[in-house]
Amino acid sequence: MIKIPETGYLRLPQIVGNPKTEPPTPGLIPISKSAWWAGVKEGRYPKAIKLGPRTTVWRVEDIRALIEKTGGENG
């Protein structure tokens, strides 16, 4: 299990993982970036927060709630 903080923010690679890093970063929710963004647009996944022009994050609390709601599987 991937350890996430109690509070704070997560960026997209922390949520869906990044297979291109060395070693590959596992995701909390094993879906593609495009599937994640489609889910955000449809309201299935939490709304993003823009911290700057190139910085988008999600609240840890929202991601934890999503994982608990879906039983650890993608929604």
Rank of each mutant, 00 (worst) to 15 (best):
residue 61 E to I: 04
residue 8 G to V: 06
residue 20 K to V: 11
residue 47 K to D: 08
residue 45 Y to N: 07
residue 28 L to S: 10
residue 22 E to S: 07
residue 70 T to L: 00
residue 69 K to V: 00
residue 24 P to M: 14
residue 1 M to L: 09
residue 51 L to Q: 14
residue 4 I to C: 01
residue 2 I to G: 01
residue 12 L to N: 12
residue 55 T to Y: 00
residue 7 T to R: 13
residue 36 W to G: 12
residue 30 P to T: 12
residue 31 I to D: 13
residue 43 G to S: 07
residue 49 I to C: 11
residue 56 T to Y: 04
residue 18 N to V: 06
residue 13 P to M: 04
residue 39 G to C: 08
residue 32 S to Q: 13
residue 56 T to E: 12
residue 8 G to T: 04
residue 17 G to Y: 06
residue 67 I to K: 05
residue 50 K to M: 05
residue 33 K to T: 14
residue 3 K to V: 13
residue 71 G to H: 00
residue 27 G to Y: 09
residue 45 Y to A: 12
residue 4 I to F: 06
residue 25 T to C: 01
residue 52 G to Y: 08
residue 70 T to R: 09
residue 22 E to H: 11
residue 62 D to C: 06
residue 55 T to M: 07
residue 73 E to V: 04
residue 3 K to A: 14
residue 50 K to R: 01
residue 39 G to E: 07
residue 20 K to C: 09
residue 7 T to G: 00
residue 22 E to D: 14
residue 72 G to A: 09
residue 6 E to V: 15
residue 56 T to W: 03
residue 51 L to H: 11
residue 54 R to L: 06
residue 30 P to H: 12
residue 6 E to T: 15
residue 17 G to C: 03
residue 10 L to H: 02
residue 51 L to C: 09
residue 64 R to W: 00
residue 46 P to D: 07
residue 25 T to S: 05
residue 14 Q to F: 05
residue 37 W to I: 11
residue 2 I to K: 09
residue 11 R to F: 02
residue 48 A to G: 14
residue 40 V to I: 12
residue 47 K to W: 03
residue 29 I to A: 08
residue 20 K to W: 06
residue 75 G to F: 03
residue 13 P to S: 05
residue 65 A to W: 01
residue 38 A to S: 13
residue 68 E to W: 09
residue 51 L to K: 15
residue 62 D to I: 04
residue 7 T to D: 10
residue 53 P to V: 14
residue 28 L to W: 00
residue 74 N to G: 12
residue 43 G to D: 07
residue 25 T to V: 11
residue 28 L to Q: 08
residue 64 R to I: 11
residue 62 D to T: 01
residue 54 R to F: 08
residue 10 L to Y: 06
residue 65 A to K: 06
residue 19 P to V: 02
residue 17 G to F: 02
residue 32 S to N: 08
residue 25 T to G: 00
residue 30 P to S: 15
residue 16 V to H: 01
residue 61 E to H: 09
residue 25 T to H: 03
residue 73 E to L: 02
residue 9 Y to E: 05
residue 30 P to V: 11
residue 11 R to G: 10
residue 33 K to S: 12
residue 8 G to Q: 05
residue 15 I to K: 11
residue 22 E to W: 10
residue 38 A to G: 06
residue 44 R to A: 11
residue 36 W to M: 07
residue 31 I to L: 07
residue 64 R to D: 02
residue 72 G to F: 01
residue 60 V to T: 11
residue 5 P to K: 09
residue 69 K to Q: 10
residue 10 L to I: 07
residue 43 G to T: 05
residue 67 I to P: 02
residue 44 R to P: 02
residue 49 I to V: 15
residue 16 V to M: 02
residue 36 W to H: 02
residue 21 T to I: 03
residue 41 K to E: 12
